[in-house]
C-alpha cells in the first residue's frame, strides 16, 4: 500500500499563498496543511507571503506544476492580485491560479480570461464551505499533476478568429454565410470567420458529411439510412449528402 502510494505521490506540490493580512494568511495555511494531511497529499513547501516578488523568485525552484492562492486586493490596491497573476503567467503558463476574494459572487470574468484562473474562493463563506472549495482546488491540482487530464482542444486560428474548445465537446461545424462558420458544442454556439476546408484538415476525427457540415465522429451515435441523417449523442440530426454517404458509412463501420 505504501509502495503504491509512493508511486502515486512520487512528486511533491508547491503551494503559494499571497495574502497581506497576517491572521488570514495563517488561517489559510493551516487549512491547506490540514487538507493535505487529511488526504495524504505531500507537498514540498507552502510559501505564505504578502510580497509578490518572493513568489516570482521561487517559481524556478518548483519541480511540478504549482498552485497559487492569490488575494485579489493586496494593501488596498484593488487589482494587485491580478497584476501578480499576470506576472506569474510570464514565468509559469501551467500553474493553477485561484483567486481568494471578499466578494466572489461577482468574480470578474476578465480575470478568469486574462490569467486563465481556475476559480474564485469567497473569504466570506462559512468555514465548511470554504474548506470544501480549497479541497476541490487541491484535488484538481493533484489530477493535473498526475497527467490524468491531457488537454485535447479543438483549435482554429486564422487571420480573423481564434477558437479554442475542448475537442470532446464539439458536436459539429456548419457553414452559414460564405466564410462564416458555426461551431456547435453541447452547451454553446460559436459563430466565427473561416471555411470548412481549413477545418477539415485539423483533426482526423472530424468527418465531412455534407457540403456545409463537418461532424465530430466522437459524438455520432447512429446513422439514419432512411432519411440520410447522422444522429448525435445529444439527439441532434445532421444531414448527409448523397455524394458522401459511402464515405460516412465506411467511417462509421470503422468506428462503431
Amino acid at each position: 500500500m505504501l509502495f503504491i502510494d509512493w508511486l502515486k505521490w512520487g512528486y511533491s506540490m508547491s503551494i503559494f499563498i499571497l495574502e497581506d493580512d497576517l491572521i488570514q494568511a495563517q488561517h489559510m495555511k493551516r487549512m491547506v496543511k490540514d487538507i493535505c494531511e487529511k488526504h495524504r497529499l505531500p507537498y514540498d513547501f507552502i510559501e505564505v507571503t504578502a510580497n509578490s516578488t518572493k513568489i516570482i523568485e521561487k517559481i524556478p525552484l518548483t519541480s511540478y506544476i504549482p498552485i497559487y492562492f492569490l488575494d485579489i486586493e493586496i494593501k488596498n490596491e484593488e487589482r494587485k492580485g491580478l497584476q501578480v497573476a499576470q506576472e506569474i503567467r510570464k514565468y509559469d503558463t501551467q500553474g493553477i491560479i485561484v483567486f481568494v476574494t471578499t466578494h466572489s459572487e461577482f468574480a470578474p470574468i476578465s480575470y478568469q480570461y486574462m490569467v486563465s484562473a481556475l476559480t474564485f474562493i469567497d473569504k466570506g463563506l462559512p468555514y465548511e464551505e470554504r474548506y470544501r472549495m480549497f479541497e476541490q482546488c487541491l484535488f484538481h491540482y493533484q489530477e493535473r499533476n498526475m497527467g490524468d487530464v491531457p488537454t485535447d482542444n479543438f483549435i482554429v486560428k486564422n487571420s480573423s478568429a481564434t477558437v479554442r474548445i475542448p475537442f470532446a465537446t464539439v458536436e459539429y461545424i456548419m457553414t452559414d454565410e460564405p466564410h462564416r462558420l458555426i461551431l456547435v458544442t453541447t452547451n454553446r454556439l460559436v459563430n466565427f470567420y473561416g471555411t470548412l476546408k481549413e477545418i477539415e484538415s485539423i483533426d482526423k476525427r472530424l468527418l465531412r458529411c455534407h457540403q456545409s457540415y463537418i461532424v465530430n465522429t466522437l459524438q455520432i451515435s447512429s446513422y439514419d439510412a432512411k432519411q440520410k441523417m447522422i444522429v448525435l449523442n445529444s439527439g441532434k440530426r445532421i444531414p448527409v449528402s448523397r455524394r458522401l454517404v459511402s464515405k460516412v458509412r465506411q467511417q462509421l463501420k470503422g468506428e462503431l
Binding site: 487571420s159 481564434t162 452547451n187 459563430n191 470567420y193
Partner: peptide
C-alpha cells in the same frame, strides 16, 4: 451584423442558470 464583420466571433453559452454571450474581436 456579426457575420458581416470578418474579425468578429460570437460565442453563445448556456449553463443553467446562466446565459453568457461573448463577442470577441480580433
Amino acid at each position: 451584423m456579426i457575420e458581416k464583420t470578418a474579425n468578429a466571433t460570437l460565442e453563445t453559452a448556456f449553463k443553467a442558470p446562466y446565459f453568457t454571450q461573448t463577442l470577441i474581436l480580433k
